[in-house]
Computed example of a mutant assay.
Amino acid sequence: MIPDSRPTARQLLAFYLEAGVDCALSDEPLDRLADPDIAQAPPSAPAKAVGAPAAAFFQAEAPPAPDAAIASARETARTAPTLEALRALLENFDGCALKNTATRLVFADGNPQARVMFVGEAPGRDEDIEGLPFVGRSGKLLDRMIAAIGLDRTKVYIANVIPWRPPGNRTPTPQETQICLPFIQRQIELVDPDVLVTLGNPSTQALLSTREGIMRSRGKWLEYHTGTRTIRAMATFHPAYLLRSPSYKRMSWQDLRAIAKALAR
């Protein structure tokens, strides 16, 4: 008798977790092989052939080469006259593969007229589900942090360098960051805040052109250049890091006090 080689439910779940699948996108299962385009694909089209579920699942066109994608992102972002236009351009931008694995675009939250803008690295699971940045545990801590200096989400603007959740919350690759960078740069230009706050090491290094770690870069005033204006910028710890290392909340409070003092002028 030939043993049953089909994976067990436990093995499938372990595979999904390792691949970064940690939540369901709908209540009902979706049979990707039932797609008419897949079922009718000719034998010469292996990418859509029945019996190749992995290829069928990712049947979208492959993203362009990194250099071409970065150039396309720069040109696309540059043309956006408003935040609404920038969001629409991002919705239709296919140069970053993260878009294919995320549930939805996570563009921004808060007041576009705010004097202070906070920028993190990338959305997590909760953000991917709701389509808003910083709504999970770290988001609740960020809300308490800004409330401590008399602010709330109606008085700040919040975004991320990466607008799509990386699978399994993995760290974005340098290429993914470079592809998305022109969009957050244009977002900062359009919001035009008086103070830019980068949350954590990745967003600080991406936006403030520093190779120093967050321990050395935080708590001091730096400059962010838009091309037409210089914005005061400060790096501080990401709320997710503070949840893991609460002893650093004291330093973060010092940073927040400096930010509040600058906004009071």
Rank of each mutant, 00 (worst) to 15 (best):
D27A: 14
E28C: 13
E28W: 11
P29L: 05
D31P: 11
R32K: 07
A34V: 02
A34M: 09
P36D: 01
P36I: 02
D37G: 10
D37K: 06
I38A: 10
I38D: 00
A39L: 10
Q40M: 11
P42V: 03
P43D: 12
P43W: 03
K48R: 14
V50I: 14
G51Y: 08
A52P: 00
A54H: 12
A55C: 06
A56H: 12
E61T: 08
E61Q: 13
A62F: 03
A62N: 05
P63Y: 00
P64Q: 03
P64W: 01
A65D: 15
A65V: 04
P66T: 06
A69I: 01
A69Y: 01
A69D: 03
A69R: 00
A71T: 08
S72C: 09
A73E: 04
E75Y: 09
T76G: 01
A77Q: 04
A77T: 06
A77S: 05
A77K: 03
A77Y: 07
T79Y: 02
P81K: 06
E84W: 03
A85M: 07
A85T: 14
L86C: 10
A88M: 12
A88V: 12
A88N: 13
L89V: 05
L90R: 08
L90I: 05
L90E: 15
L90S: 12
E91G: 05
N92A: 15
F93E: 02
D94C: 04
C96T: 06
C96D: 13
A97H: 13
A97N: 03
L98T: 06
K99D: 01
K99G: 00
A102F: 04
A102E: 01
R104E: 02
V106W: 00
F107K: 02
D109Q: 12
G110M: 14
N111R: 08
N111G: 06
Q113V: 02
A114T: 08
M117G: 05
M117K: 10
M117S: 12
F118W: 07
V119P: 02
V119Y: 04
E121D: 15
E121C: 12
A122T: 01
A122W: 11
G124K: 08
R125Y: 03
E127R: 10
D128V: 02
I129E: 11
G131Q: 09
G131N: 06
P133E: 07
F134K: 11
V135Y: 03
G136D: 00
G136S: 10
R137L: 15
K140T: 12
K140A: 09
L141H: 08
L141R: 09
